[in-house]
């Protein structure tokens, strides 16, 4: 039986060298943006699962209107359609609230298997897969480096842990967060790029999803960014002097000894 797969992607700045403006907000307007690099692995794995099981892949992204660009970029790779979740009411939502929006959309889209990348290059919490699964009340697993077996009823995956690899079987519907080790993402084909221009991208607002505005946005979020500052560059260090590698090695070991590393 074919399966309805969804992959969640985010439009992020292509560079992490960002400025903080006078109002104390990170300034990303005007910077080049693209699909969050980690999400490319999730898109690729979704496509591989579709090739294996049949079915469709829907790209889901929450953000401003520009997020449609990254949805179409994923469609160019072979995804079937997209959903853009955009509403002024979503602005300023924290991870938990954004995940509640994604969860409502995934339920409405009738997704049975949802993939995420490891984390985003901007916020980098790495918590969206588990948050979304929690709102859906579905099982989830992150750190997945391999899908060992997949059927319409369940999924067996390998999870990379600090001490080795866990193998787990999850019943579907489920949420899976993948890591870079899982695959090598493909490049878009010309045919795909053409298809992406015409593919349907549905736009849903809070009202379309039946969400309560009081539980959205900055005011509805249980966390709030109260301070933001650039991290100062590390002060210049010491260049270890010496005429030969041996002299330099000796001088460095002296320093490491003083600092009690040896």
């Amino acid at each position: 039986m074919p399966i309805k797969i969804a992959v969640c992607v985010k439009r992020t700045p292509a560079s992490t060298s960002v400025a903080i403006d006078a109002a104390g907000k990170v300034q990303t307007k005007g910077l080049p943006h693209g699909i969050n690099p980690f999400d490319e692995y999730a898109v690729e794995e979704a496509l591989r699962l579709k090739e294996k099981l049949g079915g469709t892949v829907t790209v889901v992204s929450a953000g401003e209107a520009e997020a449609e660009e990254v949805i179409r970029a994923a469609i160019a790779l072979g995804c079937d359609d997209g959903v853009l979740l955009s509403d002024p009411a979503f602005a300023g939502s924290d991870g938990s609230v954004t995940a509640s929006v994604l969860a409502a959309a995934l339920r409405k889209a009738e997704a049975k298997l949802v993939l995420f990348g490891k984390e985003t290059t901007d916020g980098a919490s790495g918590q969206m897969p588990a948050f979304t699964a929690a709102w859906l009340d579905w099982p989830s697993v992150i750190g997945v480096r391999k899908v060992a077996a997949a059927s319409e009823g369940e999924l067996t995956v390998e999870r990379l842990m600090e001490d080795g690899v866990d193998t787990l079987t999850l019943s579907l519907p489920a949420v899976v967060g993948v890591i870079k080790e899982i695959n090598e993402p493909r490049l878009p084909s010309l045919k795909g790029k053409m298809a992406a221009k015409k593919a349907p991208v549905t736009k849903w607002t809070a009202a379309d999803l039946g969400l309560d505005a009081a539980k959205l946005g900055a005011a509805g979020s249980p966390t709030e960014v109260v301070g933001l500052e650039p991290v100062p560059a590390r002060p210049a260090g010491l260049v270890i002097a010496g005429a030969t590698p041996e002299e330099k090695a000796k001088a460095l070991v002296e320093k490491l000894k003083e600092a009690k590393f040896i």
Binding site: S96, A130, A133, S140, V141, G143, E162, S221, P222, T223
Partner: peptide
């Protein structure tokens, strides 16, 4: 702790307990 374990479990706890979660 914010390893694989914390990223997997803390968001679920936050939703189950109606809590805010600051990460990492």
């Amino acid at each position: 702790s914010s390893g694989v374990f914390g990223r997997s479990v803390a968001p679920r706890l936050a939703v189950a307990l109606n809590s805010g979660l600051g990460s990492d």
